[in-house]
């Protein structure tokens, strides 16, 4: 039976101190091969010091059609931002 290699999402840490960041995807038979292929595909020019691979089918994403109800609760809470508060000019270091 013919079966395609599954798809993997690739995340790269470009240097210590930074987050892993999604860079793209690739096909591989298993996780080990996905890391090796990601090394050859996404770090040919020293773009990374660490690689995460996740099989694409295991990623759950929010639905863009639900974006409004999902993110709306944060929209009207301006008091969460420092600019909401006035501090007199003579008060410094704040």
């Amino acid at each position: 039976m013919k079966k395609e290699w599954p798809l993997w999402e690739i995340f790269i840490r470009s240097k210590s101190g930074l987050n892993h960041k999604h860079v793209g995807s690739l096909h591989a038979a298993d996780a080990e091969m996905a890391i090796e292929n990601a090394r050859d595909l996404y770090t040919r020019r020293n773009e990374g010091v660490s690689i995460w691979v996740v099989e694409s089918k295991h990623i759950t994403a929010s639905d863009p059609d639900d974006s409004d109800p999902l993110f709306e609760p944060a929209r009207d809470k301006v008091y969460r931002h420092p600019t909401f508060y006035t501090v007199p000019d003579e008060v410094s270091h704040m």
């Binding site: 395609e4 798809l7 793209g24 995807s25 690739l26 040919r44």
Partner: peptide
């Protein structure tokens, strides 16, 4: 060699971009 390897890489970046639209690699 490095240039030809890059071209293989470019092909793969693009195939996976097409797959995000629901296309099947094979």
């Amino acid at each position: 060699l490095a240039k030809v390897q890059d071209e293989a890489g470019h092909g793969l970046y693009l195939y996976s971009a097409a797959e995000t639209l629901g296309a099947d690699r094979d």
